[in-house]
Amino acid sequence: MSENAKISNTYNEAVGTAKEKLGHATHNQRMAGSGAAQKTDAQINQQHHKAQTHAHAQGVGNNIQGETQKAAGTVANDPSLRARGQANDNLGDVQRSY
């Protein structure tokens, strides 16, 4: 997520919160609902970004672990360890593409 998208989400969350509070204060349920929806949408977008970042970091870790296991399996002539390494490397690739 770009810096502009983060700023946009922060802006939309703040505006949504203000609209929701103003709507409640003036008994304008339409405004309050619109503000709540805008705020929630911004929060969902932020959580989605955090999930993507977390998955990418896990993927990098699994790639490193997989490469290490494959190398150790090659040195030790252990096909099982090489296979586990390949599986972890593949898992890391999938996680990083999320």
Rank of each mutant, 00 (worst) to 15 (best):
R30V: 14
T10E: 15
Q65C: 08
K6S: 10
E13G: 05
N62A: 09
Q29I: 06
P79D: 02
I44F: 02
V94W: 03
T40R: 13
Q38P: 04
S80T: 09
D78F: 02
Q95P: 15
M1F: 12
M31D: 10
E3D: 15
N88A: 08
G92D: 07
G85S: 08
R96S: 15
N28C: 05
Q43I: 04
G73C: 01
H56G: 04
V75F: 02
G66F: 08
G59Y: 02
Q69H: 01
K19R: 12
S97A: 13
E13M: 11
G61F: 03
I7Q: 14
V94T: 11
H24N: 14
T68H: 07
N77D: 04
Q38A: 09
E3N: 13
Q86M: 13
S34K: 09
Q43P: 08
Q69E: 05
K21Q: 15
H49V: 10
Q47T: 12
V75M: 07
T40M: 14
N9C: 03
Q58C: 04
A42S: 08
H24D: 13
T68S: 04
A37L: 09
R30C: 03
A25R: 06
A72L: 10
K19Q: 15
G61T: 08
V94A: 12
T53V: 11
D93E: 10
G59V: 02
G66S: 06
K39I: 01
G92M: 05
D89Q: 14
V94M: 07
E13T: 06
Q52R: 12
L91T: 05
G66Q: 00
G35H: 02
R30Y: 05
G61W: 00
A32Q: 05
G85R: 01
E13K: 12
T40V: 09
E67G: 11
H54R: 11
G23Y: 06
